[in-house]
Amino acid sequence: MWPSKSRTETVTCLACGAERPRDEAREYDKHGDRWDRDGKTFEHLCKSCHGDLCHHPRDELEALLVDLEAGERDRAAFLTRYLATVEERYGTLEERER
């Protein structure tokens, strides 16, 4: 039997925590490849939070966050380590703008 079309799935925005009907949210794929759907589960963002995102490529960002144990240390310690690692790997912003 087919699921009822009148039933609305509710999802939670990973940025602000608001619950929204699925059709009022956007899928978020932490690997940046939402078109390859095999074996994936998606997180969701409300339309407002999705609009606030930077939509530039983030090739190595997720791996970097895992390497730096994001979410497992206090914010100040994480940001200090993040900035130092980014500068070490990619140079300063001033260097990249030259």
Rank of each mutant, 00 (worst) to 15 (best):
A15C: 11
A15L: 04
A15D: 09
C16I: 03
G17W: 08
G17V: 04
G17C: 01
A18I: 10
E19W: 01
R20H: 07
R20K: 13
R20N: 02
R20A: 05
R20V: 06
P21M: 05
R22V: 02
R22D: 05
R22Y: 07
D23Y: 07
E24S: 11
E24N: 12
R26T: 02
R26Y: 11
R26D: 05
Y28M: 07
Y28D: 11
Y28N: 09
K30W: 02
K30F: 06
H31C: 01
H31V: 01
H31R: 09
G32D: 01
R34K: 14
R34Q: 10
W35V: 04
W35A: 09
W35I: 08
R37W: 01
D38M: 10
D38W: 10
G39P: 06
G39M: 04
K40Y: 04
K40R: 07
K40E: 04
K40T: 01
T41N: 02
T41W: 05
F42V: 09
E43N: 08
H44V: 00
L45M: 07
L45P: 02
L45R: 03
L45T: 03
C46K: 01
C46M: 05
K47E: 15
K47V: 14
K47H: 14
K47M: 12
K47A: 13
K47D: 15
S48G: 06
S48T: 14
S48R: 07
S48L: 11
H50T: 02
G51R: 04
G51T: 07
D52G: 00
D52V: 03
D52N: 04
L53C: 11
L53R: 05
L53M: 11
H55T: 08
H55M: 08
H55L: 08
H56P: 00
P57I: 07
P57D: 14
P57A: 14
R58T: 14
R58A: 15
R58H: 15
D59A: 11
D59Q: 13
E60N: 14
E60K: 13
L61C: 07
L61K: 03
L61S: 05
E62L: 13
E62A: 13
E62F: 12
A63V: 08
A63Y: 08
A63G: 10
A63N: 12
L64I: 15
L64W: 07
L64S: 09
V66L: 05
V66K: 03
D67A: 13
D67P: 04
D67C: 03
D67G: 06
L68Q: 02
L68P: 02
L68W: 00
E69Y: 08
A70E: 12
A70G: 00
G71Q: 00
G71K: 01
G71L: 02
E72T: 10
E72L: 12
E72F: 08
R73A: 14
R73M: 15
R73Y: 01
R73W: 03
R73T: 15
R75Y: 10
R75D: 13
R75T: 12
R75K: 13
A76G: 09
A76W: 09
A76H: 14
A77M: 04
A77Y: 00
A77L: 08
A77S: 13
F78D: 06
L79M: 10
R81Q: 13
R81N: 12
R81H: 11
Y82E: 06
Y82L: 15
Y82H: 11
L83P: 00
L83E: 13
L83T: 09
L83H: 13
L83A: 12
L83G: 05
T85E: 15
V86W: 06
V86N: 00
E87S: 10
E87W: 05
E87M: 00
E87D: 14
E88N: 12
